[in-house]
Amino acid sequence: MPANPKHLTTSNWQRFAKISAGILGGYLVSVTFHLALSYWFYHVNVIITSAFTGFILWATLLVLAFLAKNGWKIWGLYLFITLLFSAIIYISKIYFPI
């Protein structure tokens, strides 16, 4: 059964923003989240479990990108979360050098 056209995104830019935010933005959030965890917990365990939890987190973020009304707001949110986790990584490198 095909989707109801009134629920589909008509703008090509919004469609592109949702697809790219879901795939690329979700991946960036997932990777930086696990890297930030690896500085606070034993990094070998985090890297091993990130093979599974990284995919689950990425798939969840991919679906959430399509549930939003505006793809550019999702891009902004994903970039903000990525920068937040990157700041945690930077601070962790200063206080816990490996």
Rank of each mutant, 00 (worst) to 15 (best):
S38L: 00
L83Q: 08
F80A: 15
F55G: 13
L62V: 11
S38W: 00
H34C: 06
L57D: 05
L64N: 11
F85N: 15
Y42P: 00
L64E: 12
L62R: 11
L35K: 12
T60D: 11
N45Q: 06
K69L: 08
Y27S: 14
T82L: 01
S50E: 09
A51H: 05
G76M: 09
L61D: 10
T49G: 04
L67W: 03
A36W: 12
L28V: 03
W40N: 12
V29Y: 09
F55P: 02
S38M: 01
F33R: 02
F80C: 13
F33H: 05
N45E: 02
W58Y: 13
A59P: 04
L35G: 10
V29Q: 05
I74F: 06
F41I: 02
F80T: 15
N70E: 09
G71S: 01
A59M: 15
V63R: 10
Y42H: 02
Y39S: 07
T53D: 07
T49Y: 04
A59I: 12
I48E: 01
V44E: 05
L67K: 14
Y39M: 11
I56L: 15
L35N: 12
L62G: 13
I88Q: 13
G71E: 00
F41T: 01
L28I: 03
A65T: 07
T53H: 13
F55E: 07
I88N: 07
G76Y: 06
S38Y: 00
L37C: 13
G54A: 10
Y27E: 10
Y42I: 00
F33I: 10
L84V: 02
W75M: 11
T32A: 12
A65G: 08
A59F: 15
F80W: 06
S86T: 14
L77G: 10
W75D: 09
I74G: 09
I47E: 04
